[in-house]
Design a protein around this nucleic acid. Structure first.
Lengths: 338, 338
DNA sequence: CGGAAAATCTAGATCGATCTAGTAGACTGG
DNA sequence: CCAGTCTACTAGATCGATCTAGATTTTCCG
């Protein structure tokens, strides 16, 4: 509470008997100071409890080395990425500042606050701003988890096509061939995943077995689609029911699991279910959903690299990071195959 | 990409034919400018696309009017509070900067980065730093969701005792009298909630019906406790089984629901369950757990008020915000009472 | 109308760092 | 021994705002 004013660079300089400029050199670790004085300055700095003032540093330096990150508070996975971005950023010599977007705070506002803070590049996690909007911004922008075409912004996303293939390979490997897909309806990314599914089925010569049901991003969507699936399967012949379902995302898969359970189907004995996101939800012990996960650390590192490259004058890169398969308790070999 | 340097206050001053100082006055909305010039300056500022530079502003002004917020990335509810703090802060004329703590980024580090940025007060959401540590910090600190005694820091938390009472009143109102409690084991806050439960039962003259099972913060803890509860109930007489359970938190309640379901009990027909937190989990459609929720907007507003008051020279306040009851589908009148 | 009070505006110092330009001294080589 | 190069260091300008102190104009009122 006794607000003793924190020591400045001038204080350290006076105490160590050198100039401010030299202290600056030492603190930044720049060249131009002898080993002896370097040590002396660092010692007195530590003794005085000196900490460089970020505000002043940002103001003066040509390169702020500050990375602005915009994330959405309603997406738990974003929070996870934020922490990884801190790590990746700091490892690359960048400071990281956050700005949250959400239902009551627009992405626009979040971006502006970072601009005013002097960020020299932005990482937007799953931005809703269209590409043209991103192109307007006066600094390099990296879009995470949402691919962007062209030179408007760099992008780093998970390879969704590879993700679907992982899920399908897993199911095929278990012996499934009647594999259905519950898509994400009009949600972002749904079309791409659906396309990957259909492409895989075609390549495997299983076009006849392919069937897509309209789901959505939430549990309710999944429940609806699952009921439809059961109804459709019942009509022609019960044997025609799919033995496995690849679902748009984990939340949707949760709704699917619920309906299957209430219909008396046992997962995975009667039917296998694969989600997408490997969210905390999926990892709850009594759910333990087989799911496709994004490689968070690699995504974060790639985003920082892309931002640094863009600052170095490169053109917008578009990276795809391979996802991984987390095998849980909702997939097994089909019933008749032991 | 064509990095046109953004206009500064001097540019606006030149364009409007006034001094820098006057522009500053107008932008800050301070007294000392006539209505006419005020308008003229604002117009030219808008035309030039001028935006004040936060770095410079922070550096110079005696009061940074910057509120630092530390949240934990692993807690989804924190994210929700963050957005509310933005709102509450900005409404009170404070800027808000975030710093994330988490498994790989210490609270200490998060706090320091905010100090370096020039925050003039900190709001720590559920800090793990002990009170003595908070007292060391050279600025006012508000601990949210974790009560702190003494003058080390202000605190704003949800009134847990009132929360338990809400749950109990609800169940009593439905006609329950055999109400059990599954606690949080050694988790933070568990002891207080258990005490509230026992106190309520005593006050209601139901000490004979009170029974506490050792749970914990996670689903697995809940499952274990639920099995114990069923075992214990089976032995003396089935009729002695509690007709309702108040559970430490939502995750724990999820495990409880799972075990009850698998044991053939129908919730809420055979037994009612109340959670605590009103988390997103509880609000999933097919779970729809009756739960005690924290009043987020009020918590955020109170935290900002407390910080402002502390900055104004007041002593550390300790506020309790009343929670609310969210009635879901897991509570109903006990079986024999229609 | 005169002079005090209030309102409006400006010059210049200042916050705490970085950065440029330049000085002092040590070292090298012919 | 002197020019040339390197290393170690420093003075002072600078970033873009705020703030203080003072200048100028307007208003008010007896």
């Amino acid at each position: 509470m006794t607000a003793s004013p924190r020591p400045t660079m001038a204080d350290v300089a006076a105490a160590a008997g050198v100039s401010k400029a030299l202290v600056s050199i030492v603190i930044r670790g720049a060249v131009g100071a002898s080993l002896a004085t370097r040590e002396r300055v660092l010692t007195t700095a530590r003794e005085l409890g000196y900490r460089p003032d970020t505000r002043a540093r940002l103001l003066r330096s040509t390169r702020s080395r500050l990375l602005g990150v915009v994330f959405n508070v309603t997406e738990p996975y974003h929070a996870e990425l934020v922490e990884l971005l801190y790590e990746a950023g700091e490892a690359a010599g960048y400071g990281v500042t956050l700005s949250a977007a959400g239902p009551r705070r627009s992405e626009q506002l979040a971006v502006e606050s970072l601009l005013d803070l002097g960020a020299e590049a932005l990482v937007l996690i799953a931005p809703s701003t269209p590409a043209e909007g991103l192109a307007q911004l006066p600094l390099p922008v990296i879009s995470m988890l949402r691919p962007v075409r062209g030179d408007a912004a760099g992008s780093v996303s998970s390879d969704e096509d590879a993700g679907i293939r992982l899920a399908m390979d897993h199911l095929r490997g278990l012996g499934h061939s009647r594999i259905a897909h519950i898509d994400g309806g009009t949600a972002v990314g749904s079309a791409a995943r659906r396309r990957s599914y259909l492409g895989y089925m075609a390549d495997a010569g299983l076009t006849g077995n392919a069937s897509v049901f309209t789901g959505g991003p939430s549990e309710a969507d999944g429940s609806r689609a699952a009921r439809e699936l059961l109804d459709a399967a019942g009509r022609p012949a019960a044997a025609a029911r799919p033995s496995a379902v690849v679902v748009f995302n984990d939340r949707c898969a949760l709704g699917v699991l619920d309906v299957f359970g209430k219909a008396g189907l046992c997962v995975p004995r009667d039917i296998s279910v694969v989600g997408y996101d490997n969210s905390r939800l999926a990892r709850l012990e009594h759910i333990n959903l087989t799911s496709i996960g994004q490689n968070g650390p690699e995504l974060a590192a790639a985003a920082v690299r892309a931002a640094a490259a863009r600052l170095g004058g490169g053109t917008a890169e578009h990276l795809l990071v391979p996802p991984f398969l987390e095998i849980g308790g909702t997939t097994a070999a089909p019933a008749g195959s032991s």
